[in-house]
Amino acid sequence: MSRSSEAAALKRKRPDSSTQGLVDAELVVLNVVKSKKNQGVWVADVKKEANIAPALVDKCLTSLVKKNLIKKVPSIQNKAKKYYMAVEYEPSEELTGGAWYSEGKLDKEFITVLRETCLKVIGMMKVATVEGIHDFLKKRKVVECCTSQQVGEILNSMVLDDSIIEVKSTGLGEYHSIPIGSVCYRIAVGVTSGPKTIGPMASIPCGACPRISVCTPDGIISPKTCVYFTKWLDIEF
């Protein structure tokens, strides 16, 4: 094998070989990359599987990219790792991180817009199911290209933020148009999102204190000299 790879390396040096089609080593590497389909493959894994000298693999990869047969894709799992994939595939969700990621980063702007829109829609409709909200968005063309599953995910996170609540339809009153028992959403009682009441512990400095574990009556951090306390007691007036 090593001999053949040396031969391949020699062949590659010939100026006309790149236009002629692929050399053996490139073919091997291409097959490895293609076999991974939309999962992509990490450079180190290519080197392991192709069983070719590492330096040569690198060269093959760059030349294949140049020939537009494979592409480099970002991975959300590990941004430092280089992943390759055959051009005919789209990166899988595991690589991209799903619909919420663009270019390997969480698309916060898109999420915020979608959240705000959903909140407004629920505010207008009072009670709505995921499909109801999705249909509304589609009809009004507020947000393009977003599936009802995505809307569901957004709503779920808003429930976690306590800005909306999840209820089951009773089929009566406001729920008359929604089948009994299906999950729907409505605005939480308090207008502001977050917990309705701030607990007694959370409203004193100790509740938010990151150093409480090292605070002792006569220690360096102590309630007598605590700056958070001083600030808190001064702000009150």
């Binding site: 933020d161 607990g199 512990m201 959370a202 509740g207 938010a208």
Partner: peptide
């Protein structure tokens, strides 16, 4: 609720979620 409000105060909204 009490613990959640402590988490929100001490670790922020993302931690709260």
């Amino acid at each position: 609720e009490e613990v959640e409000s402590i988490v929100l105060k001490r670790y922020g909204r993302e931690a709260y979620r």
